[in-house]
């Protein structure tokens, strides 16, 4: 099987164009973050003339970035953690048991993925507000409300992906564990979970990324004290000035953790995706 002679050229040209399109904004983000303010307000220059790290220091003062960062970190971590635990149990049930309602459950959970967020934004907003007044539970404008909301966003995909992953683990393994005296839960904990670690890690990253990047609910369901990065970053645009260099610096800082995690573990994500999707 020989590749045609023009293929390396086509590859070079095609991937080059895609790379240019993909990387230019990232280049601008990087270089603008180290420019002084007057250099990002005037004409654009490809090469920074003056290099400064001031934006990385100033960005914490222009808006309370540290608080937004902490809020995002708490919300996304707790949501990811809880969502993964719940997804493991549900996926195990789907993968290892045949029970009436199993199909309805999988289909319903998956179909919530297609709901426009805007459809349940309004009712959820009203539920949280009214629950707050009725029970004295602070759900609206609190991190708890946001955590509950976000963990359901990643649940459907996590359950689906983990069920696919569990299916690829031979049931003979858990049978052996059960013969050795473990119950179904023991088999899950001792056999299935260790074998499914890559899938679980991938799902956790996915859940974290989902919560870290969500904007719609964050814009409605937070106040100044519970505000997350998604909304907080817009604070750099004031009436008089837009601190583009600080925005770019802040965008860079808030992206590094998720991008690094994603790139380190994208292989697992691909494995999980195909394990779930091919069936």
């Amino acid at each position: 099987m020989r590749d045609p002679r023009w293929l390396p050229w086509a590859r070079w040209a095609g991937l080059g164009l895609l790379g240019l399109f993909t990387l230019t904004p990232l280049y601008v983000m990087l270089t603008s973050a180290i420019k002084p303010l007057q250099d990002v307000q005037g004409d654009f220059h490809w090469i920074p003339t003056t290099i400064t790290l001031r934006p990385f220091a100033d960005m914490w003062r222009t808006v309370p970035l540290a608080r937004y960062f902490a809020n995002s970190l708490i919300v996304a971590s707790v949501a990811a953690l809880v969502s993964v635990v719940i997804a493991i149990f549900a996926a195990y049930a789907i993968s290892r048991f045949r029970f009436p309602g199993r199909r309805i459950f999988s289909v319903t959970v998956l179909s919530t993925q297609m709901f426009p967020g805007i459809l349940f934004l309004l009712p959820l907003f009203m539920i949280y507000v009214n629950l707050g007044t009725a029970l004295g539970v602070e759900l609206y404008a609190s991190r708890t409300g946001l955590i509950i909301t976000y963990l359901t966003f990643s649940l459907p995909f996590s359950i689906w992906m983990l069920a696919g992953y569990f299916d690829s683990i031979p049931t003979a393994l858990d049978e052996a564990a059960q013969v050795d005296g473990s119950g179904p839960i023991g088999a899950l904990l001792r056999v299935v979970l260790p074998a499914a670690t890559p899938g679980i890690v991938a799902v956790a990253i996915y859940a974290f990324m989902t919560a870290w990047g969500e904007v719609l609910f964050a814009s409605v369901m937070t106040d100044e004290s519970s505000r997350t990065l998604a909304v907080g970053l817009q604070g750099y645009a004031t009436e008089n000035d837009v601190y583009w260099n600080q925005i770019m610096a802040a965008s860079l800082v808030v992206s590094v953790p998720v991008v690094a995690g994603f790139l380190l573990l994208q292989r697992y994500l691909v494995q999980g995706l195909t394990a779930g999707a091919v069936k």
Partner: peptide, 16 residues
Amino acid sequence: LFLVPYALPVYAGVIT
């Protein structure tokens, strides 16, 4: 590198 835009939080990429 190609996967970075997808991994980036929406607001960071779009604000850029």
